[in-house]
């Protein structure tokens, strides 16, 4: 059954069953994406489950190499194979399992219903195509528009992302635009078909600090306008605190904590999340007095091909006990909506 059969008017809302209303737009269940390399199997995404609701902004945070990007690429079916492969799990998008779709079915969803914004617009845009042409392609492919109609739509889209004089910019090439403008063009391309879901993979990391806020503001503005959901993949915790409704924390391919944004910043449970938050420089009395040093998480992130037994975080964890070395902690719901995978929290050490 599809949500789309119900008329989207306010009055109709009470007739929708509670269950259907709650069905998330994107529901990832036990996703495992492994890379089979000569050196061994890399478990980049290891049994990850989370969901993103309609019109929801969810932050996916963690250090580089924790599997954030691989998760996003798995959703789009863009894992390079070989060596990568989705080993098991389900990726339900509007109730349909993307993992079971044929490449052709999945292609029709990519860029149309689910779009992606990449980290570095300079290298993510094709240097030999004008930005207009790169947006036009999306329309000619998914909407079957003529080039002329598509060009008109592309111009409208550039206007929406607030690129000045779009009629001229449409003919310009990526190298002729500034970093911020390039990312705006990238956003225009991603939003072209009014997708239900945007995967934003570090959308501001490569930009100047002054531009970062502008781009995020723009994304959120358009998100509200179009009713899109966003999976905001980032290590910029400030951006997450500002815009996300819920936060998912990943460490070495596993989800270690998941909670609404306020609890995660006010009372983080997992020692890794605590460490992440403590390593943000803060302004305030403690910092000004010079009494408190910026904290860091001790130790190194182990290589994905050299993972410890049990909880992956135990070698760096101050609360670690014997069981952490042996047995992997499963996610459990500590408070409604706040899930964490930690023995210390579970056992109340």
């Amino acid at each position: 059954m599809d949500l789309g059969i119900f008329p989207r008017v306010v009055g109709a809302k009470k007739f929708e069953s509670k269950k259907m209303n709650d069905r998330p737009l994107l529901d990832i269940r036990n996703l495992k994406t492994y890379f089979f390399l000569p050196e061994g199997v890399i478990k980049a995404v290891d049994n990850v489950s989370f969901h993103v609701g309609n019109r929801e902004i969810v932050g996916l945070v963690g250090e580089s190499g924790c599997g954030k990007s691989v998760t996003a690429l798995s959703i789009l079916g863009l894992i390079q194979s070989p060596p990568g492969q989705i080993v098991s799990g389900e990726i339900l998008f509007q109730g349909q399992d993307l993992c079971k779709m044929s490449p052709e079915q999945l292609r029709k969803i990519r860029g149309n219903r689910i779009a992606m914004i990449f980290q570095e617009p300079m290298i993510s845009l094709n240097p030999l195509y004008s930005i207009g042409d790169q947006i036009v392609e999306v329309y000619t492919e998914h909407y079957g528009l003529s080039r002329q109609e598509a060009r008109k739509k592309a111009k409208e889209m550039l206007e929406k992302v607030q690129i000045p004089s779009p009629a001229r910019r449409i003919y310009e090439y990526p190298h002729q635009l500034s970093g911020g403008m390039r990312q705006r063009a990238m956003i225009a391309m991603a939003l072209a078909c009014k997708p239900a879901m945007i995967l934003a993979d570090e959308p501001t990391t490569a930009l100047d600090v002054t531009i970062q806020a502008q781009i995020l503001e723009l994304m959120v503005e358009l998100q509200k306008l179009m009713g899109t959901s966003i999976l905001l993949i980032t290590h910029n915790l400030g951006a997450v605190a500002e815009y996300a409704k819920r936060v998912i924390v990943m460490y070495l391919g596993r989800v270690v904590e998941e909670a609404p944004v306020i609890p995660i910043f006010e009372s983080p449970l997992h020692p890794y999340t605590v460490g992440l938050l403590n390593s943000i420089p803060k302004l305030g009395s403690k910092a000004i007095g010079g009494k408190k040093r910026l904290e860091e998480i001790p130790g190194m992130v182990p290589g994905l091909n050299d993972l410890p037994e049990g909880c992956y975080f135990h070698p760096r964890c101050s609360k670690g006990r014997e069981i952490c070395k042996r047995k992997e902690p499963k996610l459990f719901e500590n408070q409604p909506g706040h899930r964490v995978a930690c023995w210390a929290v579970r056992e109340g050490w």
């Binding site: 779009a115 290298i123 195509y129 391309m189």
Partner: peptide, 26 residues
């Protein structure tokens, strides 16, 4: 291996256009 080839695929372009348009031209 370039990022823009991945972008082309993420846009849902058919493999034919990805290979002979975006990749080969570069």
């Amino acid at each position: 291996q370039e990022e823009y080839v991945r972008t082309a695929r993420a846009k849902g372009l058919p493999e034919r256009i990805v290979i002979y348009g975006h990749a080969l031209r570069n």
